[in-house]
Amino acid sequence: MYSPEPRALPFRSILAEQFRVTGFALLREGALAGAALTLICTISLFAAWRYDERLFLEPELLLPPLFVAALLPFAVWKGDRPFDRAILWTLPVHRQQAAIAKVLAGAAWLMLAMLVTFAALALVALGSGGGVGEQEVRIVEGVGGALT
């Protein structure tokens, strides 16, 4: 007995629907992460203003967003058991298309989360009077007068 062939839907409509559904699934985690990011940025900015300190957005300070990148896939696939894709059999699309659409939607939400996090950190750095990126490069003279 063969299962009926699903209707052929364009992949972009499948991807758009998965993007919307994944966004709704990440709403609670996104709100909590946004509140935490706002709190951290506000405290950092007020501390920088209070102690007259300039913050610079250097590569070392960009390590905290890696936690977002590490935890977001778990939030995207929460509630889905890895080997129980019975829901994909009931959709009017091929299972493989639905799975890859969900992966791409999660990747798009991850890029959006990284962009928002980077923009918030850049605003804190610029708001404190600092800058974004390396501000100075020092040349060190080595043994024998060679520059390294």
Rank of each mutant, 00 (worst) to 15 (best):
L112N: 05
K102A: 06
A25P: 11
P73T: 04
P64F: 07
F24Y: 12
V143C: 04
L88I: 02
Q97D: 14
L110Q: 10
Q96L: 04
L91R: 09
A119N: 08
G130D: 15
T22Q: 05
E5W: 04
I40F: 11
F19Q: 11
R54D: 02
T148N: 09
A47G: 09
L126D: 03
F83V: 14
L72P: 09
P92V: 04
V116A: 15
L39K: 04
T148G: 06
G127T: 05
Q97V: 03
A69E: 02
E136D: 07
G34E: 04
A108W: 07
E60I: 05
I87V: 12
V140P: 03
A113Y: 02
Q96V: 04
Y2F: 15
G34P: 04
G127E: 03
S13R: 01
A36Q: 03
F11C: 01
L45M: 14
T42E: 09
V132T: 10
A75R: 13
R95D: 12
L104R: 00
K78V: 03
F19H: 10
P4W: 07
Q18Y: 02
V124H: 07
A35H: 04
M1I: 13
Q135L: 14
E58M: 13
G127N: 06
L55K: 05
T90W: 03
V103D: 00
M114L: 15
L147R: 12
